[in-house]
Amino acid sequence: MRFQLTEDQRALQRGVRELLARRFGREALRAAVDEPGRLDRTLWRELGAAGFFALRLPEARGGVGLGMPEAVLAFEEAGRALLPGPLVATHLAAGAVPGAASGETVVTAVGNGLVEWLTEADVVRGDAAGAVPLRSVDPLTPVHRVPVARDVDPVAVLLTAAEQLGSATRACELAVQHARTREQFGQPIGAFQAVKHLCAEMLVRTETARAAVYAAAVTADRADIDSARLLADQAALQGARDCLQVHGGMGFTWEFEVHLHLKRTWVRTHRAGTVTESEERLAAGLLAEST
């Protein structure tokens, strides 16, 4: 399959990136880390006004009228920017929950026994009775554990994979930037073979995941979605670890965003069903084909 973004899709991607760079840049990210658990309602409404939550809602119902490929591009940019909040749940609620499409209503959902941003949500989809707060590894994603899990929408799995792809892309960018500017022994560290290999492997994993995520957005096949999720999780997790390796000790400091990507990717692996669930569905499909 040859898949090339259209000019309209590229324009959408640039538009979302520019919006997030303007409204959730480095200073806003730092402010969010300093006030964990607080959702920026003004930014949320701006996302709604820009059509982020209503991308797939038909125009006749007040939406943008686009499809899954466009939603994937938008969520990829959100992942790249480390945008906090129950983005997937609110997006899926557009058209079903009043105010969700416009960003006036914050929606979260129970999935796999976890719920994100429970205390900040206006509407909770699913049974959150008995929710117990957990100490999240990601300061930008408060989580609660609930005793009952619910079935996960495949769209939630794919959009989560798109966010992971965004983190993998950003980790690769950060590693390459640092490798070009940081000098040791009188030359950029990117001149050393070990660093070159790390950056090259990050790029290969990221682009492999990109192909899988974009293809799943087109086919909407559950096996393709599960495959995309596995590849995106791997690219995001290993990419963040390798990016930390390139940065060395400074990558763990609060002055750099690298460790935040690693922490967010850990949390996302527990959202929208676990990696194990995707692996089991793929394995069951392969076994069914072989019998």
Rank of each mutant, 00 (worst) to 15 (best):
E120N: 11
E46L: 15
V123A: 05
G67R: 11
P142Q: 10
T141I: 13
G285F: 06
G186R: 05
G248Y: 07
L159P: 05
D153E: 10
D233Y: 07
H259S: 14
T42S: 13
V115K: 09
A209R: 01
V33F: 05
T274F: 08
G51Q: 08
V218P: 01
A175K: 02
G103D: 09
D8W: 03
A191P: 03
R41Q: 12
V152S: 00
A216E: 03
P69M: 04
D8S: 15
A100G: 10
A11P: 01
T269M: 10
A171T: 09
E116R: 04
T253H: 05
Q193E: 14
G126N: 05
H178E: 13
V204E: 10
A228P: 11
E46T: 12
L12I: 12
Q245A: 15
T90S: 10
E207K: 11
L114Q: 07
T181I: 01
T291H: 13
M202W: 09
G239I: 09
D8N: 15
P147Y: 10
V218W: 09
A223P: 02
G126P: 00
A288W: 05
F192N: 01
D138I: 00
T269C: 14
R150K: 09
A211W: 06
K196G: 14
R145G: 09
L73K: 05
V218E: 08
A288M: 04
G186M: 08
R2D: 12
E183M: 14
L73T: 04
V132S: 13
L87A: 01
D127Q: 02
A211Q: 14
D122C: 06
E257M: 12
D151Y: 02
T208Q: 08
N112E: 12
G85M: 04
A212F: 08
Q13T: 12
V155M: 11
A109Q: 11
A283D: 15
D8H: 12
R150E: 15
Q193C: 09
W254K: 10
R170S: 12
A71F: 07
R41A: 11
T169L: 13
R38E: 11
A156T: 01
L114A: 02
R271I: 02
V64P: 05
L47W: 12
V195Y: 00
E35R: 13
G239V: 08
P147I: 07
A149K: 06
L118T: 03
W117M: 01
E18S: 12
L174D: 10
A228K: 11
V148K: 15
V110E: 02
H91N: 03
P69D: 03
F52P: 00
R205S: 01
V213R: 04
R14Y: 13
L244K: 05
H178M: 02
V110R: 02
R14T: 12
P188C: 10
T141P: 01
G67S: 14
G51Y: 07
R10V: 11
I225Q: 06
E120A: 14
R145C: 03
E163Q: 14
R182N: 07
P133W: 07
G63T: 09
L55Q: 07
P188N: 08
A81Q: 06
R180P: 00
A283N: 13
H259Q: 15
R30K: 12
D224A: 15
E183A: 13
Q164D: 11
R17M: 07
A191M: 13
V148E: 15
H261E: 09
E183S: 06
V143G: 06
R41L: 04
A179F: 08
R222D: 14
R30V: 11
A232S: 15
G51D: 02
